[in-house]
């Protein structure tokens, strides 16, 4: 009896020491999960989640905030975050906006008064221009975050959906049997799919 108790104590002490050692020796540098989360976020830096950029939101998610506050990333991002963090995917929180697909800002250049407000607002420096000179958006760098629209005093910035080009176009996923059966019924979802196809 006594031997057993002593043995158990010794074992507990050894394992405790091992675990303690491991926790010090293999302590992770920083918090790599934030980087992983940040990589999944779409980097639009739009702030729709209520944080000033994607990285702060990544930090917040790592600290336990819900993963469904990113409208530009939409379902795909939520799914990827759910996979990464091993949590249940939630539907997108409508409070923060709707998933809209890719967008880009376009300045109606004739109307631009050259105030530089939008340049200051752009989180990714994707607007070119100088004071009292016409501004323009570098479309390839624009994330479509919408932040330049608000400050524009003459309302000359439009956010338009990005058009699919013939080179980007690809075949949609074939419908599987349940979906094909569903097409017999005129439901909303299928009609949308038809439009998409």
């Amino acid at each position: 009896m006594l031997t057993a108790i002593i043995t158990l104590f010794i074992l507990a002490a050894i394992f405790g020491a091992l675990l303690g050692f491991a926790s010090i020796k293999f302590k992770p540098e920083g918090n790599p999960i934030i980087e992983d989360i940040n990589n999944i976020l779409p980097q639009t830096q739009c702030g729709q989640c209520g944080h000033p950029g994607c990285r702060p939101y990544a930090q917040a998610i790592a600290d336990g905030e819900p993963i469904n506050k990113c409208p530009p990333g939409g379902e795909a991002t939520i799914q990827a975050l759910a996979d990464l963090l091993d949590v249940e995917p939630l539907p997108l929180d409508a409070e923060h906006g709707e998933e809209k697909g890719k967008q880009v800002a376009i300045i109606r250049e004739a109307e631009c008064i050259g105030c530089t407000k939008c340049i200051q607002a752009c989180p990714v420096d994707a607007i070119l221009g100088a004071a009292k000179q016409m501004h323009t958006v570098i479309e390839s760098e624009c994330t479509g975050c919408d932040l330049c629209v608000e400050p524009c005093p003459v309302d000359c910035i439009d956010i338009v959906p990005v058009q699919t080009t013939i080179r980007q176009w690809h075949k949609s996923k074939p419908l599987t049997l349940p979906e094909i059966i569903a097409t017999d019924r005129p439901t909303q979802r299928i009609n949308e799919e038809e439009h998409a196809a």
Binding site: K171, S172, P174, L175, I180
Partner: peptide, 8 residues
């Protein structure tokens, strides 16, 4: 409903 695709 079934999209036409190659191979035909």
């Amino acid at each position: 409903m079934i999209s036409i695709t190659s191979p035909h």
